[in-house]
Nucleic acid binder design. Sequence first.
DNA 1: CCTTGAGAGCGAAACGTTTTGCTCTGGATC
DNA 2: GATCCAGAGCAAAACGTTTCGCTCTCAAGG
Lengths: 339, 339
Amino acid sequence: MVATYKDIRRLTGLSLATISKYFNGGNVLYANRVLIEQAARDLGYQVNDFARGLRSRRSRTLGVVLAELNSTFNTTIVSGMEERLREAGYGAIICDSRGSAEAEAEAIHFLIGKMVDGLVIIPVGDEVAGLDAAHERGIPVISVDRPVANGRADAVVVDNRAAIASAVDLLTGSGHGEIALLAGPDTLFTMRERRIGFRAAVEAATGRLPRRELTQADAVSIEGGYDGMRRLLELDHPPTAVVCANYEFTLGATMALNELGADLPRPAIVGFDNLDLARIIRPRPTLVVQPVAEIAARAAELVLSRIEGEREGEARTVVLHTRLVVGDRATFALPGAAS
Amino acid sequence: MVATYKDIRRLTGLSLATISKYFNGGNVLYANRVLIEQAARDLGYQVNDFARGLRSRRSRTLGVVLAELNSTFNTTIVSGMEERLREAGYGAIICDSRGSAEAEAEAIHFLIGKMVDGLVIIPVGDEVAGLDAAHERGIPVISVDRPVANGRADAVVVDNRAAIASAVDLLTGSGHGEIALLAGPDTLFTMRERRIGFRAAVEAATGRLPRRELTQADAVSIEGGYDGMRRLLELDHPPTAVVCANYEFTLGATMALNELGADLPRPAIVGFDNLDLARIIRPRPTLVVQPVAEIAARAAELVLSRIEGEREGEARTVVLHTRLVVGDRATFALPGAAS
DNA sequence: CCTTGAGAGCGAAACGTTTTGCTCTGGATC
DNA sequence: GATCCAGAGCAAAACGTTTCGCTCTCAAGG
């Protein structure tokens, strides 16, 4: 049988109220404190979260809904958040919506039923169904990586346009005139933003917008990056440089490049995310690196502050900045250009 | 305010006991059934899991502890399991132990405190601390990918020795005599098993054990695979073929090979896991493919049957089998050998 | 006609906490 | 010496379910 306050009362002679106070950080005499600690240890006592939650209406559990679990970027963030939340005594129930808005709504419903104290979402699209129920119940919602258009949710995002612009600037600064973007469809916030940033940066540097076939959308996957890069290479006028809009594109594009014979000219390339890549691939690639650790930290911080502190107030958006980690010159320089 | 049974009672005139029966699939008259459904819909009723759990001592929540969240193999399995569990009405609290046995024990303690009905673990090492508390409370434990030496836990694993043997056989059958293994340290069950399988298969085919420097342990990461492959290539007598013991090694090794100039002889290679790779890389690599979907399904099945069915009885171990997906001949053939 | 048993429903007692008042004590303040 | 206040503790009432033991009804079996 599992121990309860009553067992502790039996061993210490204290009342349930005092014992409860102890376990919730209230003022308890030192002698009694020791008594309770001793009894709890002897009994192997662990607080019953059901009873606690029933009374206090707090579960100390958060819901996390991901558009895609099988993505390094997402898992890195989840892993970082999970660590911080667990330190604060919170657990995370994780649901994978597999890119389906329907599964996403279902997951949110499920999590609300599980009485989560807060919701962290990497949304599938711009609108998220099922958030009304969360707001009704006063459950704070934080979106990560992509903002939510409907409902008022806090958000942690990066400055996607500036991110891509930093990559483009490096390339135009090296003399490239024909730059392509490997990215997904505009239905995804990040892809849309990065494409906008790309077009603006190219126009600012060269005075004209990039050709349409250089900013076409591919499937967001390693395979999509691979196919996209091959498509670019087979153009009549292939680009001299390619910017990849996320990790999957970067990996797929790199694989496609690696199959290239020495006969074809190798385009310059700037990748996205995952600094590990730079540690491995030689020559070292240039990467737009997102501050994943900070994204995770800020998201965890934000959701905790909404739960424990001010629940009301304007929705806040935290915008973080990417970093351009420049790799070996050979990977981005225009062949034959002056330094 | 959130609705309760009392509100439903008010609207239907039925007793709490009958309403409870309805929500737990008991026998309720059709007319009353309709009444309750109507009231529940009007009230936006959702069962309070705290009250239910407090009384019934079941949380309908599982704990999942991963040695590493940031690994495609693990996330694929978790994602598959999570889907199946959610269908059955169960949620999963996921904890990442980041390869630390200490964090693992902490996570298990945490999850038991959350009153999980079952525990699924991809363990860090051979022994897992903190399982006693789970057994005491009658919480079933399932280990995935690697068995647990202490405590009696069910397990879902693959036949690692046969998996590697199938790769070695393909290579020796193609005439290779000097084959290397890229794998992690023997402290990890899977790595140990794969190394054992490797040595046995090489000995069976060639009559002698592989040289020590061909089966050395590297760090289990993309970087480890990259470094290991470079190390092998720089040997005085480099192997003519390399078997990679998991996905990270495969990816790292492939990247190292891709940097190879045309001057050096390119060794044959057999990779592990992640069929996506085969769809992308050209020439198509040969891969030992683990049945991830089935692993996830069997693990979910197993834990649910332990929760809902027979809790007692011998610990069961499910052994699944890998599949060798043969790629382009050029990637594994011995140059100049007869077909 | 009596018994039996299944179907359907009910009231009340748990389940293990937190929380709300309340009392009591022993200084500090006036 | 009276008053106040903070610290520490207590009893009892929630919280929203499930479950135990009962009753009632109706049909089938003897």
